[in-house]
Amino acid sequence: MKKAQTMDKKVKDIIKKYYGDKTAMIAILQDVQEEFRYLPKETLSFISKKMDVPLTRIYEIATFYNAFSLKPRGKHTIEVCLGTACHVQGASRLIDRLERDLSISSGDTTKDKMFTLEEVRCLGCCSLAPVIRISGNVHPYLTQDELPKILRNYK
């Protein structure tokens, strides 16, 4: 009960920050996602009631944009860049290796909730290809061999 209340309080504050403006829905969802690392179902119904926007509209936005996740995410998000520059420098081998080492598929979270593995289309660091970004830190010029050591630093 208490947990739900703090959740509602946090979401309420976020809505307030944008003055409940319906056109700021994307920004509101982004803040909610930043707070909880994903969009919990309860928060979406809460926003729907509070802002008087049909839940289907909110789900439309939440599922349209790649930045949103309806599933809980791990402590660290590993984003493997699959931009063109990274692709020609062998980024697909990095994703294969991470999938093997973490025993998950791209898009999933490890059992210990440490890592979520994601493919992204271009982080704009093409000069450093191939790159991955873990919790906001960009790791440049990677080979699959270096991955285990990098991951150890985040555990």
Partner: peptide, 21 residues
């Protein structure tokens, strides 16, 4: 919020309005 199509002019404007782009 991560949608390639939002670089297209009309989609960008729809997204700015707070909708799916």
């Amino acid at each position: 919020a991560g949608a390639f199509v939002c670089g297209e002019s009309t989609a960008l404007m729809t997204s700015l309005e707070g909708k799916a782009g």
